[in-house]
Design a protein around this nucleic acid. Structure first.
Length: 288
DNA sequence: AAGCCGTGGCG
DNA sequence: TCGCCAAGGCT
């Protein structure tokens, strides 16, 4: 696995070498952006963010609306709000430095079990189990012999990820962190959800799923998320208008986002509740 | 603890 | 075409 990673790892900008205290902020930003969003879409936005806000204090000094606008079309814009709030917390509680402690990371807005582990491993080289959808899929196949992991993360999966996490040899303390990123990368590039490239897999010979003849998923059918006509679609349209506008938009300007008045107004109210939109002189705007 | 929360590319 | 899926978190 490690040899495969050494040869095939993508050259992603947030992976560039450097001291942990320099990597932590870029890694944190990348990890939040990568929550449910593909690498290709994240990369240009990440570059713009890091250029504009090279450290947490720079972001914290600006209004949350700037973070939302710079988020662009990455989706789930509450992440932008949380990242802005996390920057503020880093400044207030940690002197402007992203903490390395797992509990302190978890206490930051938008940082859950995965992201805290990812920052710990990828920025601070910690030996922590990083369990994302890629890792879950790789372990489900190679160890559990299943086509797909369970719909939701289970305690057993976390325990399995901990169990397979290698110990650090005395001459290579970073090996466990490298293992974590290697498993993720394998899931992203080879052991993919749709059409896994098992012919290119370095561990195909010991993969339980392959040995079992690659049986199809036997779990319950996954519930696809509805989209058309949902509040998410309406909220997305409203926020897209506000992102592009230089200033506040009035009710008439926002009405083009959606025909159904009641649903549109409900969604606008929910955006206000979330803090993504604020009432402003002459209508509504991103939080200034 | 299910359900909600964006967006766009791909098979 | 259209459902699936992409480095989850929060309530």
């Amino acid at each position: 696995m490690l040899a495969w990673y050494a040869e095939h790892a993508r050259d992603l900008p947030w992976r560039r070498p450097g001291p942990p205290e320099k990597r932590a902020w870029p890694v944190l930003v990348s990890e939040v952006m990568l929550q449910q969003t593909p690498v290709a879409r994240v990369e240009p936005v990440w570059r713009a963010w890091l250029h504009r806000w090279p450290e947490p204090a720079a972001l914290a000094a600006e209004p949350a609306g700037e973070a939302v606008r710079a988020w662009g079309r990455l989706g789930y814009p509450r992440r932008a709000l949380r990242l802005h709030a996390a920057a503020g917390a880093v400044v207030e509680r940690h002197g402007g430095r992203v903490p390395s402690d797992q509990a302190e990371l978890r206490a930051l807005p938008g940082v859950g079990a995965y992201t805290a582990a990812a920052v710990g491993a990828f920025a601070f080289d910690q030996r922590v189990a990083v369990v994302d959808t890629n890792v879950r899929r790789v372990l489900a196949r190679t160890v559990q012999g299943k086509a797909q992991p369970a719909p939701a993360l289970t305690a057993a999966e976390t325990a399995l990820a901990v169990a397979v996490l290698p110990e650090a040899p005395s001459d290579d303390p970073v090996l466990p962190a490298r293992w974590s990123v290697a498993v993720m990368e394998l899931g992203a590039l080879v052991c993919t959800a749709r059409a896994p490239r098992c012919g290119a897999c370095p561990v195909v010979d010991l993969c339980a799923w392959q040995r079992a003849g690659a049986p199809p998923d036997d779990g319950p059918a996954r519930r696809g998320q509805a989209w058309h006509g949902t509040d998410r679609q309406v909220r997305g349209r409203l926020l897209a208008l506000l992102r592009e506008a230089p200033g506040p938009l009035d009710a008439a300007a926002l009405s083009v986002a959606w025909d159904d008045d009641a649903q549109r107004e409900r969604c606008l109210a929910s955006l206000v509740t979330d803090g993504l939109v604020v009432p402003a002189e002459g209508g509504w705007a991103l939080p200034g």
